[in-house]
Simulated scan of single mutants.
Amino acid sequence: MPSAAPQEAGTEELVRPGQSAGLLDVARERFLLKLLVRKEIRVRYRGSVLGLVWSYVKPLMQFGVYYIALGVFLNLRGSTPNYAIFLFSGIILVNFFVEILRNSTRSIVDNRDLIRKIYLPRELFPVSTLWVSAIHFFPQLAVLVGACLLAGWRPSFWDVALAVPAFVIVAVLAMGLGLMFGAANVYFRDSENIVDMILMVVTWASPVLYTWPMVERALGPAFGVYMANPMTVAVEVFHLAFWMPTTGGAAGDVGLPPGLLELWLPVSAGVSLAVLVLGQWVFQRLSVRFAQEL
């Protein structure tokens, strides 16, 4: 048998250029991700007097408007014990989703100059917006925890543990949609208008300002469709973790939706994961022409 031709000294196995592993590339490029997050923070607060303090000011202002309009004028605080905590625990979670989706949709277009010049995993840009949004979310969460402690909340392990899957579900759902619309926005700038409409609806499509029994009475058998929304389940789990322990058992009929943990939490996790997989697939298919289209 003839022997194989010897490999030339100094040669290495050729690697096909441009192959992307999707979100796995982000894990390999953690240093680049860190740089992008720092850049996003610096750009966002350049010339700002308050800087990250806006992470507290804006949600507190939003909370004040909703509390006065719904809690005082419509007297929802009369039928919902500790309505202020009920309201704020939902607001900060929805704001987290809104910030990720809005900024990830613009992330590729906003970084067009960098994308034209060098190759780096395109997923880094939407994922960096998730980390920036998390940096804004945790100060708001600290305010919520402080309010709960003042209201008599004594956190248990399970209370804290329940908040984790709710946070992850929202992050995964928003990232999946952000990848999808971020890629589509390179080709069709109408995508930003579609996202704006989604964000306009999302606060009212989840039990942030109202309680779930109101929806059950209005929808009847179709209530299951409402509960299939991962944002609805995440907000209700946040209520279970932070709001219900402060009511001292006075939540009554406003307590847990039927099947929240044993049925709807796994369903919402599955829906969010499916959206992430779809978003990654769409992003990879469209990302090959980003530099040309931008």
Results as ranks from 00 to 15, higher is better:
Val202Trp: 03
Ile100Gly: 08
Ala269Glu: 09
Leu144Gln: 06
Ile135Tyr: 02
Trp158Ser: 11
Leu101Lys: 04
Gly10Ile: 03
Phe96Ile: 13
Leu141Ala: 09
Ala291Thr: 08
Pro258Trp: 00
Leu173Trp: 04
Phe31Met: 15
Pro2Ala: 14
Val53Ile: 12
Ser3Gly: 12
Phe31Gln: 15
Gln140Lys: 14
Phe223Tyr: 15
Met180Leu: 14
Met61Ile: 13
Ile118Pro: 06
Glu99Asp: 15
Met180Gln: 08
Phe181Ile: 07
Ala205Asp: 04
Thr232Cys: 11
Leu219Met: 10
Leu273Ser: 15
Phe63Trp: 07
Trp158Ala: 13
Phe73Asp: 01
Pro59Tyr: 05
Val37His: 10
Pro207Ser: 08
Thr11Cys: 10
Tyr66Ser: 15
Pro121Gly: 11
Gly178Asp: 06
Met231Pro: 03
Leu87Tyr: 04
Leu199Cys: 09
Phe137Pro: 08
Ala69Phe: 08
Leu70Val: 04
Pro245Asp: 06
Val201Phe: 08
Val195His: 10
Ala69Tyr: 00
Arg102Gln: 10
Gly255Lys: 05
Leu209Ser: 01
Thr11Tyr: 14
Leu87His: 03
Ile108Cys: 07
Glu192Leu: 15
Trp158Gly: 10
Ala234Val: 01
Leu240Gln: 05
Asp25Glu: 14
Pro207Gly: 05
Ser79Val: 08
Gln62Cys: 05
Gly249Leu: 09
Val275Gln: 07
Leu35His: 12
Ala269Phe: 01
Thr211Cys: 00
Phe167Gly: 10
Asp25Ser: 11
Ala134Lys: 01
Thr211Val: 11
Arg102Pro: 02
Phe283Ala: 13
Arg102Thr: 04
Pro17Met: 06
Phe283Tyr: 12
Gly71Ile: 02
